[in-house]
Design a protein around this nucleic acid. Structure first.
Lengths: 228, 228
DNA sequence: ATTTTTTGTCACACAAATGTCACATTGACG
DNA sequence: CGTCAATGTGACATTTGTGTGACAAAAAAT
């Protein structure tokens, strides 16, 4: 699956190299030579990943990364930092920017692509408005309906959002706090165990249409949705 | 992350200097003035890295390095060679000892620490969320699943973490305390033997999918994971 | 205002997982 | 071949994590 990758790099030669790499890997590069340009481009296209040089004219890459990670709409976008030397990685780590990974220049195309792949795989896919089917179960975000084997399920609002989230990210294990973040909203003071209760209610509702064991418990970690 | 670093150096002055450096860098120096002493100390503590002078009384550093690299139990331990002059580096390189890096005396503390750090980072891959495959065994941290020959293994939380750790660092011997540090957490009061029990449980689970002898016992030292 | 639904939390039950022990087995070494 | 230390193994009590039903407050519907 191709992704939009925003490249923020002021040196044209490296720009070019990165662009080439990303294109060959089947992704869609978006090029910015400065932070200002990047901000402009981000309004137009929401990138799936940002490649960010840490030394930039004007605002430093570090500062920009920190700003991105503190903003509600952009903080979920993974960032890979480009640094000149390996010692700098530790320095940047210490500064506690929210970067997801680091690559040192000069980099090998193989390494870069491997890291891009890893970061993209790690990120949880967004919840869309497209209908989702999993086995005989079907959830339609638009009509707000869930049917299993033809029967319509009766879910409460929270149960619906929970199921929507789980079906959007099948096979993946979700910790309770991850679920709280994504399903309840970002600033809640709700106990972790509350998730358990809602999982149970959801399981009960699913069982009513013959869907048992679609939601699995991974002890000590969280829950997983699977078509099975 | 502090590491045990074995220093093999006969000149007391340089010994002292190295010790100081390593301590300041937050590591734990183990001092040996001769090869014999070093061998003795290696039985007691398994070092994460060896700093080795190439000119030593008795057996030369070169010979010792070669021996270490040919020995099953120590060949995975990285070695940094200390040489008097830069021209000697090429000579030693030509002799094809398995040294991982070289430092010339006199050395700057900064350079030494940088190289130590680099070697340690190279040798100790951190546990990531990337799936790991080893032969027909596959562990996926994201889905929290382990499959062997297609069939899914049923592991407890600790067994999973343990296997994850081992598979992240294969072909390498881990002492019980190292395992406790990395798998259990940083400050536990748990008996060393507890590791043995969990290793056994893990072996049992692996055997259920036909994976025998993937975890080997190195008597007096620890355990090693190997694709075989 | 009253009823109904939804929600978060709690207490308890139950099953899985954990750490430790005692004993069996193995391997190293004289 | 015998001794000793290290490791394998099964059993056990305890701890931990999760399922579950009930309940009251809050929100929504009537």
């Amino acid at each position: 699956m191709p992704a939009n990758i925003l490249i923020i790099e002021d040196e044209p030669a490296i720009q070019e190299l990165l662009t080439l790499n990303i294109t060959q890997a089947g992704h869609n590069p978006i090029r910015a030579l400065s932070v200002e340009q990047a901000q402009q481009l981000m309004r137009e296209t929401m990138p799936d990943l940002i490649l960010l040089d840490w030394m930039l004219p004007g605002m430093s890459g570090i500062e920009f990364a920190r700003r991105l990670k503190s903003d509600e709409y952009s903080k979920s976008i993974p960032i890979i930092m480009l640094t000149a030397r390996s010692e700098e990685i530790d320095k940047i780590r210490g500064l506690d920017v929210g970067a997801d990974d680091y690559v040192t220049k000069p980099f090998s195309p193989r390494e870069l692509n491997a890291r891009i792949k890893a970061v993209l795989r790690r990120r949880a896919p967004q919840m869309t408005d497209d209908p989702i089917e999993s086995g005989t179960l079907r959830l339609d975000p638009v009509t707000h309906r869930v049917t299993g084997n033809g029967i319509q399920l009766d879910l409460g609002p929270t149960e619906f959002r929970l199921l929507h989230y789980l079906m959007s990210n099948p096979e993946r294990v979700h910790s309770r706090s991850q679920v709280l973040d994504r399903v309840w909203g970002d600033r809640v003071f709700v106990e972790d165990r509350t998730v358990d209760v809602h999982i149970r209610r959801l399981r009960q509702a699913l069982a009513a249409s013959g869907h048992e064991e679609m939601i699995q418990t991974v002890r000590g970690v969280g829950y997983r949705f699977s078509a099975k």
